[in-house]
């Protein structure tokens, strides 16, 4: 559905012929705030990974390593869900982060 040079080949009626294609739809551009992880504080409890509605928490070997910025919409659920005693995720504006 994203091949704009070949859009005459789109399936009639807008039928999407394969599954798991939400991955190809980049929603990161909607973001106003971005999450920043403090790896020192993070205990890798993975509550953020469970709660993220966009599956945008990147986990490797059971550890949070960062965020998928092509899909993170900046909703801040990870920040809210990160246990208050830990508080390893902070939402900051895009400019501030840079």
């Amino acid at each position: 559905m994203t091949d704009k040079d070949n859009n005459e080949e789109f399936p009639a009626g807008g039928v999407i012929l394969d599954g798991g294609n939400a991955d190809g739809y980049e929603t990161g551009g909607w973001r106003k705030l971005k999450p920043v992880l403090d790896k020192e504080k993070c205990t890798n409890c993975l509550i953020c990974w469970v709660m993220c509605p966009d599956s945008a928490i990147i986990v490797e070997d059971g550890k949070v390593v960062g965020f998928d910025m092509e899909h993170c919409k900046g909703c801040g659920i990870c920040d809210v869900e990160c246990p208050p005693k830990i508080n390893a995720i902070k939402m900051v504006s895009e400019e501030e982060a840079d």
Binding site: N7, L17, D18, G19
Partner: peptide, 12 residues
């Protein structure tokens, strides 16, 4: 699987 009735924005 297939999806019917998905959203289609100005690009499509």
């Amino acid at each position: 699987p297939t999806t019917y009735g998905a959203m289609s924005l100005p690009d499509s």
